[in-house]
Design a protein around this nucleic acid. Structure first.
Lengths: 195, 195
DNA sequence: TCATAAACGCAAATTATTTGCTTTTGTGAC
DNA sequence: GTCACAAAAGCAAATAATTTGCGTTTATGA
């Protein structure tokens, strides 16, 4: 990702980056996304446009950079005392946040950037949240599915529907979580095949 | 989606649309995506830039329009004589096509457009392919999962990994298909819970 | 065949982007 | 601390893209 952690983190570069990021977020509250231009951001940030062009290249990269930062989770998944419930609570909140207009815009911004590292980072943010839930479950001695399986069975369908169709409702999210948790304690299981 | 099926489908509008679409595809074979501009497309298409601006608004909408057209499936899923195998064959091909550079670019183009109808259409293309497989399975008297379940358990994880991480390999796709097919014939099932 | 309106072409005006050069400002050597 | 250096920013001119007003072409349906 462009513009992240330059070689001189304490100085002017950092100030400019912070100021530009803040300007983007400020403009986003004031106007629609499509109307935001680099000259406008530069003016808001008190910076010359060529600075932004040289550091980020184009507006997609800049918006992706800002979106990744905003998508960074700011708290630990709530602890309900049970892995399955933790996952359900987390997934409900995740689906809601990502379905919101700002959420969808941030995802779109991240995916629109040329270099895929922003998307990869976001995926890792999510994965880390789930790892926290999984680790807690393991500490309690509960069974809990692979993190990869959670990504496949819970996160992916939520994201797919947000991106390609209609946002999933609470019932659907619950069904997804149940389907994932079946991997560790199948609803109806025995020692051998019936056929 | 802008520019699709105008009110005068037989005339000049249609010719311009075809010519512009062809120009976009031609330029894509000659230069990298980021370098394609509307004036360049207009020149290639033998059209004035303002025509494109007025019909599509901006390059994202135009590229999305072209991408949707290219993502339209051009053949029926192959018939292996068995629903599960049909699904596996289809999913492998889908994963491969969508993981390719042109595939990823088309998906990105579709998702980047303002109006979400392109993404919705693409989702429907996929759904329809799966419906064909499901209908054949039903005709044969086989059990086959809900199309929605296939979207959740097979399509979504493939797409998520392509968009946010690394492309899924064949083994992973096979695992996803197996996980989906378990919905109809669980690998290990009985009449009641063990606990 | 004619009236109509949608879509296009053209060109001028505006706005965004690129680029060469200068100045500022952190950083590390001394 | 001071100085030399290089990275990043500012400025302004040049280039390129976008918007817009207006005249012209061309499907469509009466």
């Amino acid at each position: 990702m462009a513009g992240r952690e330059g070689p001189r983190p304490g100085g002017r570069s950092a100030r400019v980056q912070a100021s530009v990021h803040a300007a983007v977020q400020a403009l986003m509250t004031r106007m629609e996304r499509a109307a935001i231009t680099i000259p406008a951001i530069a003016a808001e940030a008190g910076v010359t446009p060529s600075t932004i062009y040289r550091r980020w290249g184009d507006i997609q990269e800049l918006l992706a950079d800002v979106a990744v930062e905003r998508l960074k989770p700011d708290m630990v998944p709530i602890d309900t005392g049970n892995g399955g419930n933790d996952l359900l609570a987390w997934a409900e909140q995740y689906a809601e946040e990502m379905s919101s207009k700002p959420g969808r815009e941030m995802i779109r911004d991240v995916l629109a950037s040329q270099d895929g590292s922003g998307a990869y980072q976001c995926c890792n943010f999510t994965r880390q949240q789930i790892e926290v839930i999984a680790a807690r479950a393991q500490l309690r001695g509960e069974g809990f599915p692979d993190v990869d399986s959670i990504m496949d069975r819970v996160v992916s369908p939520i994201m797919y529907r947000i991106l390609f169709g209609e946002a999933p409702d609470a019932a659907h999210v619950a069904r997804l979580v149940a389907g994932a948790m079946e991997l560790v304690s199948p609803a109806r299981a025995s020692v051998d095949e019936p056929a």
